[in-house]
Simulated assay, not measured.
Amino acid sequence: MKDKIILLSIFFIVLSSCVSKKDILYLQFDQIDQAKVSNDYQLTFKPDDLVQIIVASEDLVASQPFNLPIVASSPTAIQAMGQSKLMSYLIDASGEIEFPVLGNLKLGGLTRVEAIKLIKEKLTPEYLKSPVINILITNFKITVIGDVKRPQVFNIENERITIFDAIGLAGDLNITGNRKNITVIREEKNIKKIYTVDLTSNKLVTSPIYYLQQNDVIYVKQNNAKVQDASYTRNTGLFISLGSVIISLITILTR
C-alpha cells in the first residue's frame, strides 16, 4: 500500500510538469499573407561596426589611394605564419568613418546599397571612372543565451542570418525552452529595443527580427514546467510526504 501511495504521488507531480507538443513544435499556428513575406534583407550600418571597403576600377593605380593597406595578423597556435587581411574602418559614435582623400563619410544608418551609392558619388567623376565598391562588416556577431544547448556569441561571416539560423548555431532550444516567448534585444538609432516573438507561430516569418542584425541578442526563457521543476526539485520530499498523508486520509475515510 505504501509503495502505491508513493507511486501515485510521483505520478501527480510528473503529470503537473508535462509539456504539450503544442508548446514545442515550431511554426504550427496562424495563417500568413504571403505578400508580407519578403526576402529583401537590408543590413543597416551602426556605430562600432568594423567595415572593410574595397574600391576597384579599370585604373588600378588611381584606385589605390582609396584602399587601406593590407596588414599581417598575428600568428596563432594553428596558423604559424598568420594571415594577411585588409584593414577595417571603425564607424564612430556619430556614424562616421575617416575615408582616404574624401575625409569623413557618414555611413551610420545607411544600408549597404546606400553606402555604396554615397561613396561612388564622391569618387565619380573627379577621382575615378565607373568605380566598383564592396563593403563588408568584419565584426558581425549575434548572441544566443538562455535555455539553449550551446549559449554563446557567434561571429557571422555572410551577414545574412535568420533567427532559426541562430538557434541552429546554438544547438536548438532545450526541451524546456519557452518557444512562445523569445526575446530579441536590438539597437536601433542608439536605442535598445526589445522584441518578443513566438516560434510556434507562422507569423514569425513576417517579423522585423526574422532576419537578425549585427549585435542582436536572443534570450530564450525557461518554460513554466522547468520553473516549476526547480521548485519541485527542492521540495520533492515534502510533496511526497504531504501526498502520502492526503492519500492515507482519503483511504481511511472511505473504508
Rank of each mutant, 00 (worst) to 15 (best):
P75H: 04
E114D: 10
I32H: 01
D23Q: 14
V61H: 08
A93K: 08
N39Y: 09
Q79A: 14
S9V: 06
L102G: 07
L110C: 06
L128T: 07
Q31Y: 04
S38R: 06
I53E: 08
E126G: 07
L27I: 03
N104F: 08
Y26K: 00
Q31G: 08
I91Q: 07
V51Y: 05
L118F: 04
N39L: 11
D33V: 08
S73A: 09
A80F: 03
E96G: 03
F12T: 13
T111S: 15
L128A: 13
Q79P: 00
L123Q: 07
I6P: 00
Q83V: 11
C18M: 15
L50A: 12
N139T: 13
L128K: 07
D30P: 01
L105G: 03
C18E: 03
S20C: 13
S17G: 04
S94T: 11
V14N: 09
F99M: 08
D33C: 04
E121A: 15
V37Y: 11
I78L: 15
D92K: 03
E96P: 01
Q34R: 09
A80V: 09
F140R: 09
L110F: 09
F140L: 02
E96V: 02
D49A: 08
L60S: 12
S16A: 13
K120V: 11
N104G: 00
